[in-house]
Each structure stands twice: as structure tokens, then as C-alpha cells.
Design a protein around this nucleic acid. Sequence first.
DNA 1: GTCATAGGCAACCTCCTGGTTGCCTATGAC
DNA 2: GTCATAGGCAACCAGGAGGTTGCCTATGAC
Lengths: 115, 115
Amino acid sequence: MTNTISKKPSDPSADIIFAALGDAMRLALLSRLNDGRNHSISALTASGPLTRQAVTKHLYVLEQAGLVQSRRAGRETHYALRAETIIIAQKYMDQVSRQWDSALGRLKDFVEREV
Amino acid sequence: MTNTISKKPSDPSADIIFAALGDAMRLALLSRLNDGRNHSISALTASGPLTRQAVTKHLYVLEQAGLVQSRRAGRETHYALRAETIIIAQKYMDQVSRQWDSALGRLKDFVEREV
DNA sequence: GTCATAGGCAACCTCCTGGTTGCCTATGAC
DNA sequence: GTCATAGGCAACCAGGAGGTTGCCTATGAC
């Protein structure tokens, strides 16, 4: 299992993407963005428990991981999902799961031999 | 998108699993364990840059996330992959990817309308 | 029984994360 | 032009993460 999800050198590595997903608040933000629409920071802040600064920090982490993209529109910054990265991560998990599926067979043999 | 990967209340949540995967060293350890065999802490430490304590800490995080399982054998503790959890995480990603695929179509419409 | 090996426990340190507050500028509504 | 809104920047704080070191016990080899 390699640490590289994508072949683009500028793409974030697997651990960066998983670390970005490894926070309940960021998962909640991604869930909000999952309606396919753009959202401003204020809109994302309005219905949540955090301050605008905290939301901005989380969005920055998600953007660095390539999971969202932002666009300035006047005084507002709009955020939207960048589904390409989650698809890349999903393919990565598929590959890992297949590798581990075959490993699981060997492990079962090993465990049964130990019993 | 829900934060619950599995229906078992004792199963770790999505953010816990992703956080466990969100470290390059833990990914490297999982890669080492990916051969389907058991490994002791000393064996995992021997070829890596970290002390035995650091490796033990990482293995603890992976075990809390349900990604590995440990078994004491004499003076050694053996670790092996717990492929069930990675398969659960993989299905989660599949579901998320499908949700975001449909969202992507709507987002494209939105972006094209803005251009 | 002795020695080497394996690992658990705890304390320590540095750095980072997560969140808030204050202040400022830019933009939009009127 | 004025006021409200939106957001960027920086500093601060508490707690946690990641790693090391020291010490101890348990187990295995001989």
C-alpha cells in the first residue's frame, strides 16, 4: 500500500486527505456542502456551533486537502465540494480493501493454524 | 452524509477511523501489516525510524479505530490487520462518492450558469 | 539461575490543533 | 455617504498529538 493516492505531485497525499476527514466538525461541513451548492462562510457558520474563524480554519484544512474549492464573489467566499478528490480517495480505499481482502485469506489460514 | 459508518454502537465513528489513517507513520505501519501476517512490536520497530514506544502508541491508535487487532503471545504482542474495519470504511467511501457524484452534476449546472 | 529480549507504564518535551477574541478592510444595501 | 455585512489576519489559550527517555516486570534461551 503506497502513500500516494494520485499521480499528480501537487495532489495531497493519502494521510493529508484522511487527516482532513478525521474531524467530526469537518465531516459535518462536508455534509452541509453535499447538496451540490455553493455556500458562504457566514451561511456555514450560521447553523453551526462554531465561530466564523473556526469554520474558516476547517475550510482551509479541507481546501488544502483538495476536498473543497473556494471562489471569491464580492465580499463573500463561496465553498463547494471538490468531488474529484473524494473519488480519488474512494478508489484508493477500493484498492486497499482489495489488497486487504487477499491478505485476510492468508491471515485466516495463519490464525487457524495457531488455534 | 452521516458520521456513522457502522450500525454497531461500539464501532468507532468515521472521524475516528479517518483520523487514525491521517498519519503517514500509521499508514506505513498498516502497509507493513498488509502481508497478512502477525507482527510483533519489536519487528515493526526494527525497520522503522521510531522508538518502540512511539510504534506502540501508533498501534494503540489503530487498534482503538478498529483497524488492527492485538494478541499477546508469551512476551510478545502480535498485531494483525482487522480488515473488517477497512472494508466498512471502504463502503462508507463508496456511499459518499455516490452521493457526491450526484451532487457534482448539480454543481456543474450551477457553475455553468455562473459563467 | 542468569542473561537477553520484549513490552508496559509514566513522565517529559515540543509542536500542533481547535477554538476564541479583537481589529481591520472590502463589499453590498440603502 | 452611511451603515451593515462578510471575511482576512493575527494573537492568545488550553489541550492533545507525536516522540523520547527511564524504569520496571515478564518471558524465553541457554
